[in-house]
Amino acid sequence: MAEPLLRIENLCKSFGAVIACRDLSLEVAEGEVHALIGPNGAGKTTLLNQIAGDLAPDSGRIYFNGQEITHLPLHRRAHLGLARSYQITSVFPNLSVAENLQLAIQAHQGHSFRFWRRGLSDPQLCAELELSLERVGLIKRADDLAGNLSHGEKKQLEVGMALACKPKLLLLDEPMAGMGPGGTVEMHKLILQLKRQMTVLLVEHDMDAIFALADRITVLIYGEVAASGTVDEIRNNPIVRQAYLGEEDEPC
C-alpha cells in the first residue's frame, strides 16, 4: 500500500484530567474524503487542532506527505499543503470579502514582503481572486466587510480561504453546522467538487452529508478510534450503531 498522505501514530493529548486523545492512530490516503464522526466531546476538533498545529500533542507523531510535522509551527504546515477551516468561523471581520481571499492567495504565493504596489495590481493574484470569489459564490459581496456577511456566507468564505491556499489536505471542521438548508446544499456541492482535486478530512454531524460525501469514515469515542472503514462497513458496524448512530434518532 502506498504511503498515506496523513499518518498519525499514537497521539495523546489531555487537558488536566480530561483526555482528548488516547493513543490515537489514523491514516488518511491521498485523494479520499475521510470523515471523522463521534459524539460531542469525542476529541474531533482537538485532533484537527493537533494536525493543523493549533495545539501541540503530549506525545505521538504526525506525518504528512512522508515528512514528520509533529513539532512544525502552524505556518510551516500551511506551506507544506495543509489548510483548515474553523468550527467557529474565523474570517477577518474588518476586512472585505475580497481582502480576506486576497490574504489567503498571498499566503500561497510565498512571502508578502512587498511594500509598494497594491496587491491587486498583480495580474496573477487578480485572476485567482476572481476564481476564488466565483467558487464560493460571493462575487456580489466582494467589497462588503466580512463581518457583515450572514453565518452561511461566512462559512463559505472560510472554506474559500482554505481552498485559495491550494492545499493537498483540507481539514474542514463542521462546515455545515448552523447553516440553513440552502447553505447546506451549496456546501455539499462545493465539497463534491473538491472530491477529485484534493484530500479532505471532514468533521461533520450531518450524517446524510457524510454518507453521501465520504469515502472512508473514522469513528472517535472518548478520544479513541472506535471503528474505521468504508461507508458501508461503518453503517453496519454494531459498535458504531450502538454507541453513536443510535443517538441519531434523537431530535437535534
Binding site: G53, H75, A78, F92, L103, S112, R114, G119, C165
Partner: peptide
C-alpha cells in the same frame, strides 16, 4: 501593499494568519 494586508490581518486574527501560512 501585500505587506500592509498581512499586518492588518494580524490585527484581526493572528492565529488565522498563521494557519493560512504566514510566519
Amino acid at each position: 501593499s501585500p505587506f500592509g494586508m498581512v499586518i492588518r490581518g494580524c490585527r484581526e486574527n493572528e492565529k488565522r494568519m498563521q494557519s493560512l501560512g504566514f510566519p
